[in-house]
Simulated scan of single mutants.
Amino acid sequence: MHTKPVRWTAAAIFGTVLSVAALNTASAQSGAASWYGSGSRTANGERFNPNGLTAAHRSLPFGTRVRVADARTGRSVVVRINDRGPFVRGRIIDLSRGSARALGMGGTTYVSLQVVD
């Protein structure tokens, strides 16, 4: 059986470096979180489930699991990144309604993010 050697392109290497940088940045992120409960499709193409434990982040790869902890209460929830956003300056993550409910948040809340896988 003959296999071809793997050839790394600059784009593949650069994309990997960006993903790792985004993960390292997110593991230390804290700031404002908001939530959203409507939409039909997410940026990764799946149907939006407002009650799911999902979230939107500007740069983390789709599928990344992130622990979001409420700075006031200490409550936390693990969410899966499946969308892009938030599109409001000063916010670091947009949670689905289900994720926000699990945290007990009603509006904008100060949170910390930590990548769990």
Score class of each variant (00 low, 15 high):
Met1Trp: 01
Thr3Asn: 07
Lys4Asn: 13
Val6Leu: 14
Arg7Ala: 12
Arg7Gly: 06
Arg7Cys: 06
Trp8Pro: 00
Trp8Ala: 08
Ala11Cys: 00
Ala11Phe: 00
Ile13Val: 15
Ser19Lys: 15
Ser19Trp: 00
Ser19Pro: 00
Val20Gly: 01
Ala21Val: 14
Asn24Glu: 13
Asn24Ala: 14
Thr25Cys: 01
Ser27Arg: 15
Ser27Pro: 00
Ser30Leu: 01
Ser30Cys: 05
Ser30Ile: 00
Gly31Lys: 08
Gly31Cys: 08
Ala32Ser: 13
Ala32Val: 12
Ala33Leu: 08
Ser34Cys: 08
Gly37Thr: 09
Ser38Thr: 15
Ser38Tyr: 12
Gly39Ile: 06
Ser40Phe: 01
Ser40Leu: 02
Gly45Asp: 11
Phe48Asn: 03
Gly52Gln: 05
Leu53Glu: 02
Leu60Gly: 02
Leu60Val: 05
Gly63Leu: 06
Gly63Trp: 08
Gly63Thr: 10
Thr64Gln: 05
Arg67Asn: 08
Ala69Pro: 00
Arg72Met: 07
Gly74Lys: 07
Gly74Met: 09
Arg75His: 14
Ile81Trp: 11
Ile81Glu: 02
Asn82Glu: 08
Asn82Met: 05
Asp83Ile: 04
Asp83Val: 05
Arg84Lys: 11
Arg84Tyr: 01
Gly85Lys: 09
Val88His: 14
Arg89Tyr: 09
Arg89His: 15
Gly90Phe: 02
Ile92Lys: 05
Asp94Val: 08
Leu95Cys: 04
Ser96Lys: 04
Gly98Arg: 10
Ser99Glu: 09
Ser99Lys: 02
Ser99Asp: 10
Ala100Met: 09
Ala100Ile: 12
Ala100Tyr: 04
Arg101Lys: 13
Ala102Pro: 09
Ala102Val: 05
Leu103Thr: 09
Gly104Val: 10
Met105Asn: 02
Met105Tyr: 03
Gly106Met: 06
Gly107Pro: 04
Gly107Ala: 12
Gly107Thr: 09
Thr108Asn: 07
Thr109His: 07
Thr109Trp: 00
Thr109Tyr: 00
Thr109Gly: 01
Thr109Lys: 10
Tyr110Asn: 13
Tyr110Trp: 14
Ser112Trp: 04
Ser112Met: 02
Ser112Gln: 11
Leu113Ser: 09
Val115Gln: 04
Asp117Pro: 11
Asp117Ala: 06
